[in-house]
Write a protein that binds this DNA or RNA. Structure first.
Lengths: 359, 359
DNA sequence: ACGACCGCCTAAACCGGTTTACGGGACCGT
DNA sequence: ACGGTCCCGTAAACCGGTTTAGGCGGTCGT
């Protein structure tokens, strides 16, 4: 016969137990400051009343939320549609859980990423795929929350975890070149914020640009080059890959080799090629990027650039936690000096690539 | 030359602008109660100081967090390892974003799901795969937070969104039976909380039990039955599927048809079969469950039971939002009467199933 | 017998905002 | 000149906890 209507507060417990609310607080947080039997009595009464310290009130006084934010410039529907992100989230989540932190996702709300950021109750943020020229990056910085960048443009003052994009991309292109391909199509990830790059094209320091640079290095070393319009882009999803390939095909491009910047894009592209009765790799070869877990189980098994996805998440959390308790811990120590980690990539040859069709 | 050390508070803005903190609050929340020029002036000063209302303080007074929790009994590393969950999260995330809510993940912290729940600052929770006999379900209920169950055992008082597990499972088994298979192996998802079912086996009303019931319906209608030990289980990941199949094989089972309760398990099982030089579907047929997006792109393309994954997420959010503003809105109306939705499933035949091998 | 110390508990300040109730001045009509 | 509104803005209470500074009675040491 308990009333479900209202959540019991600390005063309710205090009154019921005939003690001050300080005592109730102590019973939960520093029981050693109370006589053992008093602490027990209070806890039993709290249990009976169904009392639990209000998490928000507790946060307010403690100044910590035990929550880590995962910031993405894209809406969650596209973020989670990329299998890459599942593995990344698994890595980040495992590391956060181990440290006792929960995960909160921060994505644009009513159009504003900074707005979402302001509403978020987090002790630190892992930002993934945040372009340095994102229009709201300054406002985000002003929140003063510790941030670690992943797969983003370097921003002064923030630590980062990235991979060897250039080397990976170069390896992918070299592989196709070695097989005799010369007509290549690049499928990139759409710049997260269309507005930010309306004039300048993709962020010149972003992931997409770095990978294109890697592709170009390999090409020019082989005396080849990308044709005009041979770089298309779409959201990093299976669907986006299919659409991007269709656009290129309709534009008249007839590549024999495709360099996709994510496995999801590669999967979509392969599907679209099939729909055009083109065989992979007999007619067209495809190289992906990421080496997601299912890559080996696909038809055909995907040749791709491996990157340590879960590890990337783990190391990001590691760096972030260091930044968080650098600010919480020693009184004077404001911020740690930012650290930049670059993880290795390597080519994994499977079955989606083959020799240039001799027709 | 701004000091980065301390976050500006509302009093700082008030002092700087020569107004009360009430005025500052009004400038942000009810500008119409201030002279337009005053409101502007305050906002400009706030902007200059880099002031933003502290989200936690705001939550405390407003009583709302604009955050929805996603509760899973498993650690995030296993949850996110299942591609199914990516699609589900995409559905749930899109719906939440549209309503202006952020997403927070609630998974066991230091072993306690209820503990994590108590730390979470959310207005409502979507619980996925929560067994009715989970040891902490009572404690979770006592938090009083609105909850919608997905793929869980029904719990009195809470709304739920599920799928036709029995019908789907039956269709899967009927398909294999029609192809002539009689020796079947079931690979189920591991009960989330080992402790909860130590004695009783899996939750008799849980998803796993419902699907097994569906399989059995089809079998007994065909005069067949599951062999002893023909139900194995593992975490719903690719890896888990491989290990489960290996265990069954080592136990001497030699099925020609496999009923996996998730596509991830099916993928892992197919990989393990390959490692034993068994061909799919020539030697062994495999039916999955979920119809994740990559299912059609696998080698072989996966025969599976389709379920509307993203829609399940959307409808769960819909129900949850209704419950949330039923409690926030009209003063008297405590809770809405719980609603239970069951979404349809259907068999999708692709290439991972074939006729019983005549050897 | 007296001061010091200790163990247990409490009053009050504080975290950083929002909201209610109200005060003062300008304007209006008479 | 006076009461009634309206417009702007403020003081103080409040959200639900934590934490600091002490108070009080009993025991110990001498």
């Amino acid at each position: 016969m308990e009333q479900r209507t209202v959540r019991p507060r600390i005063d309710d417990v205090a009154r019921e137990a005939g003690v001050s609310k300080t005592a109730v607080s102590f019973a939960f947080n520093s029981p050693e400051r109370l006589a053992p039997e008093t602490a027990d009595r209070i806890r039993i009464i709290a249990e009976r009343l169904g009392y639990t310290p209000h998490p928000v009130a507790r946060m307010l006084t403690q100044g910590a939320t035990l929550t880590i934010g995962v910031l993405t410039p894209q809406p969650l529907s596209v973020v989670f549609a990329n299998p890459f992100f599942g593995t990344f989230a698994a890595g980040i989540g495992a590391a956060a859980e181990k440290a006792g932190y929960a995960l909160q996702f921060i994505s644009p709300l009513r159009g504003s990423l900074a707005g979402a950021m302001h509403h978020a109750t987090v002790d630190g943020v892992v930002a993934v795929g945040l372009a340095g020229d994102h229009p709201e990056v300054d406002e985000i910085r002003r929140t003063g929350v510790p941030i670690v960048l992943v797969d983003s443009t370097a921003v002064p003052g923030w630590s980062s975890v990235s991979i060897d994009d250039i080397g990976g991309a170069r390896a992918a292109a070299e592989h196709l070149l070695a097989l005799g391909h010369r007509d290549l199509l690049v499928i990139g990830v759409e710049p997260p914020t269309p507005g930010s790059s309306a004039t300048a094209g993709p962020d010149p320091n972003g992931v997409t640009a770095r990978r294109v640079a890697g592709y170009r290095q390999a090409l020019s070393a082989a005396g080849a080059a990308l044709a005009d319009g041979a770089v298309v882009a779409g959201p990093a999803t299976i669907e986006g890959g299919g659409e991007a390939l269709d656009r290129a095909w309709r534009a008249g491009l007839r590549p024999t080799g495709i360099l996709a910047m994510s496995d999801a894009l590669a999967i979509g592209a392969i599907g679209a090629l099939r729909a055009r009765d083109l065989r992979v790799p007999t007619d067209v070869s495809v190289v992906g990027f990421d080496d997601i877990e299912v890559a080996a189980y696909l038809e055909p098994a995907l040749t791709t650039i491996h990157q340590p996805i879960a590890r990337k998440g783990r190391e990001a959390i590691e760096l972030l936690l260091a930044a968080i308790d650098a600010r919480t811990g020693p009184a004077g120590a404001g911020a740690t000096t930012p650290e930049h980690r670059v993880l290795p990539t390597h080519l994994v040859v499977r079955a989606s690539t083959g020799p240039f069709p001799r027709r």
